[in-house]
Design a protein around this nucleic acid. Sequence first.
DNA 1: CTCCCGTCCTGTGGGC
DNA 2: TGCCCACAGGACGGGA
Length: 274
Amino acid sequence: MPELPEVETVRRELEPWLVGRRIRRARRVDAPRGPKYAGLERARGRRILGVARRGKFLLLPLSGGLELVIHLGMTGTLTAREPDGHVRAVLELHGRAPARLYFRDPRRFGRMLVVGAGDYAALPTLARMGPEPLSDDFQAPAFFAALQSSSAIKTLLLGQRPVAGLGNIYADEALWTARIHPRREARQLSRRKTYELCDAIEAVLSAGVEAGGTTLRDYRSLGGQPGGYAPKLQVYGRAGEPCPRCGAAICRIVVGGRSSHLCPRCQRWPAQRG
DNA sequence: CTCCCGTCCTGTGGGC
DNA sequence: TGCCCACAGGACGGGA
C-alpha cells in the first residue's frame, strides 16, 4: 500500500509532533510476539531524536543507541486518534497531548520494532536498499549498473535494490512515463532508456509527494486525510481506459505475480529482429 | 549469489 | 439479496 510518497507524507506529519518527546511505553496490541514487533519494550524511557525515512521504512532514532523501525506493509496506518479496530501497537509518550501514536494494520503485514541503531540484520530489504530517489545519491550511471540483471525490470524495481521506495503503483507509472514494458529484461535496456527511467522515477515520486500520496482505499495521512495523487495516475488501475498519451486501451498483465498496467502501444515489446 | 514462488493476513468488490 | 472467490498498495524465506 504505502509507497515512498505516502510514507514521506506521514513522516512529515510525525516529525514536528514526535521529535524531542520521551517515550512512556511502546506496547504490542493484538499482534503475536515475534520478529515483526520485537524489542518494543526497549523503547521505554527513550527520547525520540528524529523521524527519518528510508524507502518505505520509517526510522526513528532513539536515545541510548536504539532505533524504532516502522513499516506500514499493505494496510498500515498511523494515527493520533484511537482507531476502531485492528490496532497492533501503541506508542505512549510523556507530556502534552496528543500523547499516543496508534498503529492500525488490518492485514498484519506491517511491523514496528526496536533495533540497535543501524542494525538492520532483521530487515534484509532495508539493509540492502538502494539510494533514495529524491536525493543526490540517486545517480543514473549507478542506476544503470544496478539494472544488470536477468529479471523483469518491474520485478527488479519492486525489490528496492536499484532504488528505494517504489511499489506497484509508482513502478507502473514510472515505466509508462519512460515507455518501458514492465516485463522487459532489465539488462537489455539501453543505457539511454535507463536514464529516462531514472528521470521518470524521480518525476513520478516527487509529484506523488507533492500531492500527499495516493489513496486507493486504505491509505490515510496521520491526520486522516486521503492523498491527492489518485486522479493523476496515468495507467495504474485504469485497464480499458485510453492511454493519456496515445489513446490506445490500457491493459493489465501480471508480472512477477503483481498486477501491472501499461499502454501496449507506448510500451512496446522490442521488435523481434533477425 | 541470484531468481522465482509461496506465504503471511483481513477486507472488499464484483460476478453469479 | 446473499454467497463465494479473486484480488489488494509489501516483504521475507525457502528452494532451485
